[in-house]
Design a protein around this nucleic acid. Structure first.
Lengths: 96, 96
DNA sequence: TCCATGTTTCTACGATAAATGAAACATGAT
DNA sequence: ATCATGTTTCATTTATCGTAGAAACATGGA
């Protein structure tokens, strides 16, 4: 994970709505949730939410798949593990 | 760590210069570095750097102490551990 | 006291991000 | 083909962030 990807991922997490989306998706698990349900759950308009979902996806923190008319979003565990790995390696005192 | 502190911390990490500052300070260890040395090491003007240092400090990721004319910055391990803890608890599939 | 050094604050401006109404697109049902 | 539903894209406005010159502040030494 290079520094550009890392800053992008942190940028994705640095906003209230997006952090809530991610928490919700992590909580929900592999099954994921359609955009509409997330919108409803968080009280964020669909178009606003769409913007944030796109942001999270481009940062590699969530995945999307289509199921009929619905687009299902779910947490991307790989992406988050990569970020955690970076933090442990670069942002923590190795001696501590 | 509440959601506001968390977004603030991620915001602090979501910028190239600040991430580099933190990496440098982590690498340097408890001894820390004066602002001028960081400025020199990263090639960032002192006033610009001062802005970012302030940002990092308010986010609880670094500490400052004065030593004579110098102001010494160092990584705040506690702050980073708190952030890591939050991530593991809220951003990772507990089942995985 | 006066000066040099290290650092921050003030100020201003260009760049980037957030929010949302309106329009468009995609899919499935009739 | 037509329509309803779920979702995104476009376009616009407003807010926030990043940068750096200039000025100010703090400390230590002569």
């Amino acid at each position: 994970m290079d520094i550009e990807e890392v800053t992008k991922a942190f940028g994705a997490l640095s906003q209230d709505t997006r952090l809530k989306v991610l928490s919700l998706l992590v909580e929900t698990g592999t099954g994921g949730l359609p955009a509409g349900d997330i919108s409803l759950a968080l009280g964020v308009p669909q178009n606003t939410l769409s913007f944030h979902l796109s942001h999270l996806e481009h940062s590699g923190l969530i995945n999307r798949r289509r199921a009929g008319r619905f687009i299902i979003y779910s947490a991307n565990n790989e992406g988050m593990k990569n970020l955690l790995r970076y933090m442990v390696e670069n942002c923590c005192d190795k001696a501590a």
